[in-house]
């Protein structure tokens, strides 16, 4: 299962696991959207990237699409625990002007 969903205090968090690419996005998207749409009390959707092992620009499309879905319902989107690289790629899209995005605390080497 590439996504685990948890609802708490008005926030639905989607913990995404594994690689995010054009091949894996459809299943990830469907799991998130099904749950988000049916959880009417969720005011904020959080995408948690702690366990994401790889992402290319398909991940930006995934986040942009969830932003459109959330904002269309007057709800908020936040992205947490992006790796340094994934954070860089996200910022190329300008998504940080629309939604809060946060970098992972990398282990100190």
């Amino acid at each position: 299962m590439p996504v685990t969903l948890k609802f708490r205090n008005g926030t639905l968090t989607a913990f995404i696991k594994g690689d995010i690419d054009h091949h894996t996005v459809p299943e990830i998207r469907e799991m998130i959207d099904d749950c988000f749409v049916s959880t009417e009390n969720a005011q904020t959707l959080v995408l948690d990237f702690s366990d994401v092992t790889f992402m290319d620009s398909s991940g930006v499309g995934l986040v942009m699409g969830r932003y459109r879905l959330a904002s269309g319902k007057g709800k908020k989107l936040r992205v947490d625990n992006l790796s340094r690289r994934d954070y860089m790629i996200m910022k190329m899209s300008g998504i940080e002007k629309l939604a809060e995005i946060n970098q992972r605390k990398e282990a100190v080497k």
Binding site: S57, S58, V60, G61, L62, M64, G65, M88, I89
Partner: peptide
């Protein structure tokens, strides 16, 4: 459009 971000070439470049 849709779920493509249009960032593929920019990512390859950077």
């Amino acid at each position: 459009g849709g779920d493509r971000s249009g960032l593929g070439f920019s990512v390859m470049e950077s």
